[in-house]
Design a protein around this nucleic acid. Structure first.
Lengths: 211, 211
DNA sequence: AGAAAAGAAAACCGATCTGTCTGCTTTACA
DNA sequence: TGTAAAGCAGACAGATCGGTTTTCTTTTCT
């Protein structure tokens, strides 16, 4: 009963997902199970009973650690985002060379993410798609996540010496979001390469202003 | 009770949404109400009872026209997609000039879409985000929708004389998806301009092979 | 005008939802 | 070893879910 249900992909071995972490406490097990179920089956579509069954935990235990389902969703998004960013920026940090190589490397790392059988799109994009209307917790979590990304992108663009760093980061963010959605819909990781070519094309013209 | 609830944006005046259509039959009212609620509050999060209340219809009437909630979702996606494409391609058809102007015009039309107060992102992206795991009706509807878009893009790129038409269409699709998601998350229509600049940048290098 | 279809209102069904509460067992720590 | 916390199992509550059925009214078309 602790096996991964057939409707869920196996936890990734790459380490971008919370599901690949070894749970220690009951709280961990609940968080990991909720993460896997929420991200694969949807937040609203996944019930609390399913989460505790997958986690092998008691309902009272869940509600001792998380005040409500909303709070659990919030915790899942935060933990999932942190895990993903640690993996993503960790991979990028291994790339030595100029900032341009690191910026293009973004799309190589994205390729590996898309190519993982457990890839289910970006949890934040999926969450905002569900809870769009109200300015919910999901939206704020997504904003924070994107803020982290933009900060990193801007640092690289600054190092590269492009003129409009803010607009450059926005451009790359559009490419990243577009690649994620296209890869998710088409189940085709090669959209990372398509986006990479667009990025190279953009950087070539944007770099003209560097010193 | 037929008023738009506070949680929903007013129906668009531009005509890209099904909500802007004047409902004639009870079936129409149900379809329009379901479209507005599903797209604004989420598919799973919106109950049948809410739909019939918003539509001012009886539950039996709904189930006479639609076999199930899934069938209703399917009908909403199909109708919403058809309405959107009629609006989108209609706007683009008004652009006279070379294919390049029409391709860049895509992002001007997208701007108007994003700028509408009733903008809730792309229904297909949102639906796939909810029903990702199973190869559901939503996924097939999204594929069909993207197929329409790609066909149009390829026709323009062919007219423009670019070398790799298929890859060019994929590139523009990434830009469109990315702009949609970024605009939805940031509630900022100007991501359409960012994507437009990327498209111009891409077309300039891709056009080198035209005759 | 009269037949027939469409629709409204509301009761009703079984299942499932989030969340609470009560026992009992296991773990952890002093 | 004894005490306290943590956790499991499951019943339970009230609401809501998707969906069916019945009765009555309105519309529509010949």
């Amino acid at each position: 009963m602790l096996d991964t249900p057939a409707t869920c992909h196996p936890p990734s071995a790459l380490g971008w997902s919370l599901s690949s972490r070894e749970p220690r406490s009951a709280r961990d097990r609940i968080l990991v199970a909720a993460s896997r179920l929420f991200c694969n089956q949807g937040f609203a579509a996944t019930g609390i009973d399913t989460v505790i069954e997958e986690a092998g935990a008691a309902k009272a235990t869940l509600y001792k650690h998380f005040a409500s389902k909303q709070a659990l969703i919030e915790a899942v998004l935060e933990a999932e985002g942190e895990t993903w960013r640690a993996w993503f920026f960790g991979r990028l940090a291994q790339i030595d060379g100029p900032a341009e190589a690191r910026l293009l490397g973004v799309f190589d790392v994205l390729y590996d993410w898309f190519d993982d059988p457990g890839f289910y799109g970006c949890p934040f994009i999926n969450a905002v798609a569900e809870f769009d209307t109200d300015d919910s917790v999901a939206r704020r979590a997504a904003e924070l996540h994107k803020e982290h990304l933009l900060t990193w992108l801007k640092a690289q663009l600054m190092e590269l010496g492009v003129r409009d760093v803010k607009e450059g980061a926005r451009s790359l963010a559009v490419l990243i979001d577009g690649a994620i959605v296209a890869a998710q819909h088409g189940r085709d990781p090669s959209f990372a390469r398509t986006a990479r070519n667009l990025a190279r094309c953009f950087l070539e013209t944007a770099e003209t202003g560097r010193g």
